[in-house]
Write a protein that binds this DNA or RNA. Structure first.
Lengths: 355, 355
DNA sequence: TTTTTTTACGCAATCGTTGCCGAGAACGAT
DNA sequence: ATCGTTCTCGGCAACGATTGCGTAAAAAAA
C-alpha cells in the first residue's frame, strides 16, 4: 500500500543519522552547508513531508480543531464553517466536523471522541436537546480549549461569539409594528436554547415599548427547531385557528422560517395580506422566494472566523487563560415583501373618515 | 494545560508494566482476571482513553478521511458531506473538510496537505479550474485511496460516484420541449468539467431526438460556475438580447440556476411567460421561490454515502485494488411553475384558425 | 607540541501504544 | 525429583520526528 518517505530513509540513503537529517532539514547552524545541501536536495527529490502524526505525538498537539454543530446542511452553519475553515487554513489547522443532529447523546459522543486527544480545541454550537453541560464542563475544567458560538451556555466561562439576538428579535418585531402589524405571533425553537430565550426577550421588549399587550398564546415553541415539519405545521395551524388570529409571525430560526412559509402556503394564506412574516434566515435565496421574505440576517461567516481566532488564541496561549471574551456581532433586517405595510382593514375605515 | 491519563500512568499507579495494562484493557486472555479487573476499574475511574495519535503512528493510519470540494456553503455539497459524515461516523472515521473555492492551486495544496499522512483516503469533487490531474495521479499511483464523486476525471482509474448527468440534461431539455418550448438556451459552467460536458451532451441529444436544430449561440459557459455574478448576468443578458431570443433556459448548476433566476428578475422578464427556466438545484427552497422552480435534483446525500463506503472499502482492503466501480445514480426532475406549458403566441393563431 | 575551542555529527530519550520474546511461578505428569 | 506446560506478566523495540548531551576530529590558540 501507500508508503511515504521518512527521515530514516533519507538518513540511510545518505549514510547519516536521523538527527543530522532532521537538523539539516530545519536549517540548523551546526550542520555543514554541504551536508545540508545534500539532505535538502534528496528530500526535495523524493518529496519528503514530515509525518504530522509523529509530530503530533511528540508535540502533544494535532494542529486540528473540532467543530460540533447540529447540522451542516443549513445555511447559517455552512457559512459559519466556511469562516472557520478560512481562518483555520491560514493558521495551519485542519477542521474536523461533526454533527449532533440536535441530539444530546450524539453531541456527547462527538465531543468526547474529538476531545480525546485528536483535536487541540473545540468550536461548539449547542444542540437543541442539550440542557445540561457536564460534558463541556469536565473538559473545560481540565483546561481543554473550547469556544462556543451562536448557541451558548452561561454556565461555562470561556470565549463566546454570538449575535445580538435580543436586538435581532427586537428589530424584527419593531419592523412589523412599524409596518402596521400589532397582533404578532412568535415562532421559536426549544426554550432552553440561548438564542431562543434572547430572541423572545427582544420580541417581548419591542411589544412592551410599543404598549402592545403580550399574548402568551401567540408564542409557540418547536422543540425540534423545525427539523420535524409536522411540529411546525401544527404550531402554525394552531396560531391561525386562534379566535384572535395574529396578523404577523416572527419566526426565530432558519428552518423555522422556511417551514413556516411552506405551511402558510399550504394552508392557503396570502403573505403579507392575510398574515405577514419576518424570520431569521441566512439563505441567500429568501429574496427570490414567493413572496420575497423579510429576514434577519446573521454574520455567519464572521462568527466562524472570530470564534476560530479566539480558539486558536486559546490553544496557542502559553499560560492558562482566565479572562474570557464574549463577542457580540450585529444582525441586520433585510426588508422585502413578506412584511409590506399593512393594508388597513375595512373596519378601520371609520377612523379614516374621521380624519 | 490539558493533560490526559495514559497507559503509563495506570501502569505506575498499579505497579504494572505498560504492556500488561495494554493487554488488560484489550481483554487479553493472558492476563489474570483480577489484574484485568483492577486495571479496567482504574481506567474507568480516571476516564482513560487511548491516545488516537499514538495509535495512528503505530498502526500507520489515522482513521480519518479527507474531503476536497469547491465549497461547503452550497446545498449539493453540504448534503453530500452530510452523507459522508453519516457513514464515516458509523465506521469510526473522522471527516476532515477542505475547500478549493474552485481554485486549482488551492486544490493542489489541500490535497497534498491532507494526503501527507494525516488522512487514510480522499473524497474529491474536482475544482472548476482544474484541467490536469497530476496531483491526484501521483498519489493514486502510489496506492493512496481516492474516490471521486460528482465532478470526476476519466484520466484516473479509481472508484467514482456520479449522477447520470447526460440523462439529467436530456430529461430537463425534453421536459421543456414537451411543455412547448423550442428555442432552448443552455447555461453551464466550465467546459472541461465532466458534469458540464455530460449535461451538455444530454441537452444536445434531446434537441436532436426532437429534430430541433442546435443553435451554438444558445450555449453559454460560465467558467466560474456562477461564483461571479457578473459573469452569469452577462451571459443571460447576451442570451435575451439575441435576435432570435430563446424562450427557455436550461441551467446546469445550483448557483447558476439561482443566479439566473435573479438575473431574469432583475432584467424584468416574466418566468415562464417571457422565458422558461429549468435548472439543476438541490436547494429545498426552490419550490418556495417566485415562481417556483422546476429543478433537476441530485441524490447528494446518497452520493456522499456511497462514495464514503467505497473509500473505506479501498482503505481497509488488504490487497491493492485493481477493479474499480463507477456508480451512477439517477436525477429527478421536479416540475413546478417555471416551466409551465407554453402559452401559444399570437402568430400561431393562424394555425389554430386552420384547425 | 600541547591545550583549548570550534565544528559537525551521533546517541539515546521522548511522545503513547502494541507486538514479540522471554522469564518465573505453579502445576501436573512421569 | 525432574521435566514440560500453562499462566501471568515484564522488558525491549518500534512507529517518525525532535532535541539535549556527548564526543571525535579539525582548527585555532597557547
Amino acid at each position: 500500500m501507500y508508503e511515504a518517505i521518512t527521515i530514516k530513509d533519507i538518513a540511510k540513503a545518505l549514510g547519516l543519522s536521523t538527527s543530522t537529517v532532521s537538523r539539516a532539514l530545519r536549517g540548523s547552524h551546526e550542520i555543514s552547508s554541504e551536508t545540508k545541501k545534500m539532505v535538502i536536495e534528496y528530500a526535495e527529490q523524493f518529496n519528503y513531508r514530515p509525518n504530522p502524526i509523529a509530530l503530533s505525538l511528540k508535540e502533544r498537539r494535532s494542529r486540528s480543531i473540532g467543530v460540533v454543530v447540529c447540522e451542516i446542511a443549513n445555511n447559517f452553519f455552512s457559512q459559519a464553517i466556511n469562516g472557520i475553515e478560512s481562518v483555520a487554513y491560514n493558521r495551519g489547522y485542519h477542521v474536523i466536523i461533526s454533527q449532533s443532529h440536535e441530539s444530546y447523546d450524539r453531541e456527547v459522543v462527538n465531543v468526547e471522541h474529538l476531545a480525546s486527544r485528536s483535536v487541540d480545541g473545540l468550536l461548539v454550537s449547542i444542540s437543541a436537546e442539550t440542557d445540561h453541560f457536564e460534558h463541556f464542563k469536565n473538559l473545560h475544567d481540565k483546561g481543554f480549549p473550547i469556544v462556543f458560538f451562536d448557541r451558548i451556555t452561561d454556565t461555562i466561562e470561556t470565549h463566546k461569539v454570538v449575535v445580538d439576538n435580543y436586538k435581532g428579535g427586537y428589530d424584527a418585531t419593531q419592523h412589523l409594528i412599524d409596518a402596521g402589524y400589532t397582533k404578532i405571533a412568535h415562532l421559536t425553537s426549544a426554550s432552553h436554547l440561548s438564542i431562543s430565550r434572547e430572541r423572545l426577550e427582544g420580541y417581548k421588549a419591542a411589544l412592551r415599548d410599543n404598549h402592545i399587550p403580550l399574548n402568551e398564546s401567540y408564542i409557540k415553541n418547536c422543540d425540534h427547531g423545525g427539523m420535524i415539519y409536522k411540529e411546525l405545521e401544527d404550531a402554525v395551524k394552531s396560531l391561525v385557528n386562534l379566535k384572535d388570529k395574529p396578523d404577523a409571525i416572527f419566526s426565530a430560526g432558519d428552518r423555522l422560517t422556511v417551514s413556516c412559509l411552506a405551511a402558510l402556503k399550504a394552508i392557503g394564506l396570502k403573505i403579507p395580506d392575510d398574515i405577514a412574516l419576518v424570520g431569521f434566515s441566512n439563505s441567500p435565496l429568501v429574496e427570490l422566494m414567493n413572496p420575497s421574505l423579510t429576514a434577519v440576517k446573521q454574520p455567519a461567516f464572521e462568527m466562524g472566523q472570530t470564534a476560530t481566532e479566539l480558539l486558536i488564541k486559546l490553544i496557542e496561549s502559553k499560560r492558562a487563560v482566565t479572562e474570557f471574551e464574549k463577542i457580540v456581532l450585529q444582525t441586520e433586517v433585510v426588508v422585502k415583501d413578506s412584511s409590506a405595510n399593512k393594508i388597513p382593514e375595512k373596519n378601520s375605515k371609520t377612523k379614516r373618515v374621521v380624519i
